[in-house]
Amino acid sequence: MFTETEQKVYDILDLLEIKYDRHEHDAVYTIEEANNLGIHIEGQLCKNLFLRNRKGDIHYLVVLDETKQVDLKSLAKQIGSSSLSFASVERLFKYLGLKPGSVSPFGIINDTESEVVVLIDRDITNAEIVSFYPNINTVTIGVSYLDFEKFIKWKKNQILYVDID
Results as ranks from 00 to 15, higher is better:
M1F: 11
M1H: 13
E4R: 15
E6W: 01
Q7E: 14
Q7A: 15
Y10M: 13
Y10I: 10
Y10N: 02
D11E: 15
I12E: 10
L13H: 03
L13P: 08
D14N: 15
D14W: 09
L15F: 11
E17Y: 04
Y20V: 03
Y20K: 06
Y20T: 00
D21S: 10
R22W: 00
R22Y: 11
H25D: 01
D26I: 10
D26V: 08
I31K: 05
E32L: 12
E33S: 04
A34T: 12
A34Y: 00
N35Y: 08
N35M: 13
N35I: 09
N35E: 14
N35L: 15
N36C: 07
N36E: 11
N36L: 10
L37R: 09
G38D: 07
I39A: 04
H40S: 03
H40G: 00
I41N: 00
I41M: 00
E42G: 10
E42S: 10
E42N: 14
K47S: 07
N48F: 12
N48D: 09
N48Y: 11
F50S: 04
N53D: 14
R54M: 09
D57K: 14
I58V: 13
L61Y: 03
V62I: 10
V62H: 03
V63N: 06
L64M: 13
L64Y: 02
D65C: 01
D65G: 00
E66D: 12
T67C: 05
K68T: 02
Q69L: 09
Q69R: 14
L72D: 06
L72W: 07
K73W: 00
S74L: 07
S74H: 09
S74G: 02
L75R: 02
I79L: 07
G80Q: 01
G80T: 01
S81A: 14
S85C: 09
A87G: 12
S88P: 06
V89D: 12
E90F: 07
E90M: 09
R91L: 13
L92A: 07
L92R: 02
F93Q: 10
L96P: 08
L96R: 07
L98D: 04
L98E: 09
L98S: 09
P100E: 08
P100H: 08
S102V: 05
V103E: 02
S104R: 05
S104D: 06
F106D: 04
I108G: 01
I109L: 14
E113I: 03
S114N: 15
S114D: 08
V116E: 07
V118W: 00
I120K: 01
I120Y: 02
I120V: 15
D121W: 02
R122A: 14
D123R: 13
I124E: 00
I124T: 01
T125I: 07
T125V: 07
N126I: 04
N126Q: 14
N126K: 14
A127N: 04
A127M: 03
E128T: 14
E128L: 11
V130F: 02
V130G: 07
F132K: 02
F132N: 01
Y133K: 08
P134N: 05
N135W: 01
N135Y: 05
I136R: 14
I136T: 15
I141R: 00
I141K: 01
L146S: 13
D147L: 12
F148E: 09
E149A: 12
E149Y: 13
F151T: 06
F151S: 08
I152K: 06
I152N: 04
I152T: 07
K155N: 12
K156R: 15
Q158S: 11
Q158F: 04
I159K: 08
L160M: 15
Y161S: 09
Y161V: 15
D165G: 13
